[in-house]
């Protein structure tokens, strides 16, 4: 078990999205989530780092980054939701799926996952109105044709952290 001592958000994310990982490594994913919760500006820094990884030309790195993003949405609470709910971050996701930006160079798997995440957040976080604006814009542009089917285990149901800490 690696300990968080001396680890930064960037080092956790590099480990969690390492293209050499044979499968998603939840120790690092949860380590990243925990680090966000520890740092004053954790969510702001984290979304910037995540946007960069999600735009990786390496599909596996981008897919892992999207899994990390999904985990953060479940485990990092309102502070993180607020950052994701800003156009500054949403625009980075839009770039991934839009042919006007990176869309032509991004795999279908990554684009599908981005659209699924956006749609699931429009349902789970109606108070984050910019997420809806972004999603509806993608529909108007014909980038999203119909709402995706979200598997039951992928909906954003707020859950208690997997490793509750005793103060």
């Amino acid at each position: 078990m690696a300990e968080a001592e001396g680890e930064s958000l960037e080092s956790w994310l590099n480990k969690a999205t390492n293209p050499c990982n044979r499968q998603e490594d939840w120790e690092y994913i949860i380590g990243f989530c925990d680090q966000i919760n520890k740092e004053l500006e954790g969510p702001q820094i984290a979304v910037r780092l995540l946007a960069h990884k999600i735009q990786s030309p390496q599909e596996w790195e981008a897919v892992q980054a999207l899994t990390v993003l999904e985990a953060c949405m479940k485990n990092c609470g309102r502070r993180f939701h607020n950052e994701v709910g800003k156009f500054r971050f949403l625009n980075e996701l839009i770039k991934v799926v839009s042919p006007k930006y990176l869309g032509d160079r991004v795999s279908e798997k990554v684009k599908t996952k981005v659209i699924e995440l956006l749609y699931s957040w429009t349902l789970a976080l109606p108070e984050e109105s910019k997420i809806k604006d972004a999603y509806h814009m993608l529909k108007r542009q014909g980038i999203v044709h119909s709402d995706p089917q979200i598997p039951a285990d992928r909906t954003l149901i707020p859950s208690p952290p997997p490793r509750p800490k005793n103060p």
């Binding site: 800003k86 156009f87 625009n91 770039k95 930006y101 604006d133 972004a134 814009m137």
Partner: peptide
């Protein structure tokens, strides 16, 4: 004030 100006600067990507 900072938050207000951040809100003003937060725009959807032009398509």
């Amino acid at each position: 004030l900072g938050e207000e100006s951040e809100e003003r600067d937060d725009h959807l990507l032009p398509m």
